[in-house]
Structures are given as C-alpha cells and as structure tokens.
Amino acid sequence: MTFFIFLLACAAAATTGVMFKPGPWYEALTKPSFTPPNWAFPVAWTIIYLLLAWAGYRLSLIPGSQTVLALWAAQIALNTLWTPVFFGAHQVLAALVILAVLWVVVAVMVVLALQLDVVTGLILFPYLAWLCVALALNCSILMKNRL
C-alpha cells in the first residue's frame, strides 16, 4: 500500500506534463544540439517516476530515514512546480532557479539514501543524472533565447 502512495505522488507530479504541454512556444525556442528528442521526455520521466516511487517505498521501510523522506517530499513538490512555471508561464529563469534547487535537494537525497541503503541510493541516481541534462537544457534555452 505504501508503494502506491508514493506512486500516486509521482502520478500527481506527472499530470503537470499533461496539463502544460510544450506546444508551439517551446518548439519555437532555439535549443542546444544536445536536446533529447521529444519522445525521450515521457519515456525518461515514466522510468524516473517509477524509480522514485520504488525508492520512496524502500526508504519508508528504513528506520531513521525521516530526513531523506522529507527531501523526497520536497523534491516531488519542486518537480511538480517546474512544468507549469516553464511550459505554462514561460518563465525560463524562474524555472531554472526551481531546477537548481531541485538538483541540490535530489543530490543531498541521493547521498543520504546511499548512506542508509546503497540500492535505494542507486535507484535514485538516474533521476539526478536526468536533472543534470534538464539543468543544462534549461540554462542553454535561457541563454540562447534571451528570455
């Protein structure tokens, strides 16, 4: 049952991608050469959200994981916030700030999770890697488009 609570939180975050689609505004932006193809985003995020739910569940079973679980809650809130700010409000700088804070939260979460349970820390690592790509992409879009 606990896994499904984490999965529900991830699904709620994912709904922002359905509500605030990239659309013509995003397509018109000048993007860097390393921009993943459009199909890669839903694939990557589906995998990441499943891994996040699994990691959250595993953390909930570990005594002393309250701090990491608080970081899990913070990251899902920040994750949920980024899409409407970037795609909905077209506030690329604000989205970059959110993403930078999200990256720090997830980096700390990964380090603390590794200390509690190596497997859980490794489950979270692809998320951190994808956030590195997202941060570079968001920053590049900001610079290339003078937004």
Rank of each mutant, 00 (worst) to 15 (best):
Y26T: 06
V118M: 14
L69D: 02
A136R: 13
M1Q: 03
A107M: 09
A70C: 01
W82Q: 12
I98P: 06
A107S: 15
A53M: 01
L50Y: 00
R58W: 01
S140P: 10
P32V: 10
N79L: 13
Q75V: 10
M143H: 01
A129N: 00
F87I: 09
P63S: 10
N138K: 06
I62H: 00
H90E: 10
D117I: 06
L114Y: 10
C139V: 13
W54V: 12
L78S: 11
L29D: 02
W82F: 15
L124A: 10
D117H: 12
V110D: 04
L131G: 06
T35E: 13
V111Y: 07
Y57S: 02
A134I: 13
P36Q: 01
C10T: 05
A11N: 05
A13V: 04
V110K: 04
G17I: 02
L69A: 04
W25Y: 15
A28E: 11
L93E: 10
I76W: 09
V108E: 03
G64R: 03
A89Q: 14
A94N: 07
P126F: 07
L147D: 00
M19D: 00
L135T: 14
Q115M: 08
A100N: 07
P63L: 03
L112R: 14
P42H: 00
C10Q: 11
V104M: 11
P24A: 15
Y49W: 13
M143R: 12
D117F: 03
A113W: 01
N138F: 14
P37E: 06
Q75S: 10
L52G: 07
A12P: 01
P84F: 06
T80M: 13
P42S: 05
V133M: 15
L135E: 10
P63M: 00
D117T: 02
I5P: 09
K21N: 03
L81K: 04
L78H: 09
A94E: 07
A107Y: 01
Y127I: 12
V108L: 13
Q115A: 14
L135G: 08
V110A: 07
Q75N: 08
V118R: 15
Y49H: 12
A14D: 07
P22H: 03
F3Y: 15
T30S: 06
W54R: 11
L50D: 01
V111E: 11
A134G: 13
N138D: 14
T80R: 01
L7I: 05
T35M: 14
V105C: 06
L29R: 03
T83P: 05
T2P: 08
N138Q: 14
W82C: 12
F20P: 13
Q91R: 12
A107L: 14
L137G: 10
A53R: 05
I123Q: 01
A77E: 02
M143G: 00
